[in-house]
Simulated scan of single mutants.
Amino acid sequence: MTKRIEVAGLNAYYGSHKAVEDISMTMEPRSVTAFIGPSGCGKSTFIRTLNRMHELIPGASVDGSVALDGQDLYGSDIDPVAVRRTVGMVFQRPNPFPTMSIYDNVAAGLKLAGIKRKGDLDAIVERSLRGANLWTEVKDRLNKPGAGLSGGQQQRLCIARAIAVEPQVLLMDEPCSALDPISTLAIEDLIALLKERYTIVIVTHNMQQAARVSDKTAFFNLAGPGQPGKLVEIGDTETIFSAPTEESTADYIAGRFG
């Protein structure tokens, strides 16, 4: 079952510096929520709080709550590693494990989870590569290095690796920023398919991409240099792009700043 994400009063820090302030929002199951806003407004910091990757940075901390179907991910009894298995992440640049084959890249998380039987691994690897729309391109070279694929194929391999462990949520931090237009379109098509099974959150600087792939859009901004990023507004993507409530949202979408 895919999960609803509910964030309430969230603040994120790097040491004593507050990077994002008082964010509250809900991200619905089987939908795509896009985060937009100028560089430095906390979008990538915030998305990393949703699967507890932010706290892996020395000195980083979070207060407030992030709940999956009502369960607080920052509760004292919650295992952060289990959170990151439930809430998968795809990063800005494709990062396949360079010394591993295509097959082993996808199987890596499965093996860590204790799945050892080759028949089980084979089935899940194929299913995950099909889910990432990559199987037909790589099925005859599964033992070749993952790093030997094109950039767009590498990113889809990373998506296959993320979905192999069957998360309920998939976070994507600018997944197309390092890709050419054809590869970008392939990822966008894939997002449309994946949202049937996952709650998807994507950070993007591409306004057209946000408009194409997302159901809801959240606009972030900051008052000035050194100030924390804040959520300005969130709403249906069509409304945010055609009739936003806040003037700053309209100015950003129109390209007047950022």
Rank of each mutant, 00 (worst) to 15 (best):
L56D: 03
M100I: 13
V90F: 15
D77L: 01
Y14K: 05
F97A: 11
A67P: 08
I102G: 13
D79P: 02
A108Q: 10
L73C: 15
R93D: 10
R30S: 06
F97D: 12
L112F: 12
V20A: 03
T45I: 08
L121P: 07
V66P: 10
I47R: 06
I115R: 15
I47Q: 11
R52D: 04
S16N: 04
S24W: 01
S61L: 11
G40Q: 03
A113W: 12
L110Y: 07
N51P: 14
I102F: 14
F35L: 08
V90M: 07
A113V: 08
I47N: 12
D77H: 15
S101Q: 13
V20K: 02
I115W: 05
S39N: 15
A67R: 14
I57W: 15
V125E: 07
D63M: 13
H17S: 11
T33F: 06
D63V: 11
S101H: 15
L10Q: 02
I102A: 06
R84H: 09
Y103P: 03
T49G: 07
L10Y: 02
G64H: 13
T99E: 15
I78R: 04
F97G: 05
D120G: 10
G75C: 07
A113Y: 09
P94H: 10
A12M: 10
T86P: 11
P98K: 04
I78T: 09
R84I: 02
K43S: 11
Q71I: 04
V62S: 11
P38V: 02
S16I: 01
R117G: 05
G70M: 04
R30N: 14
C41Q: 05
M89W: 05
L56Y: 05
E55V: 09
Y103R: 14
V66C: 14
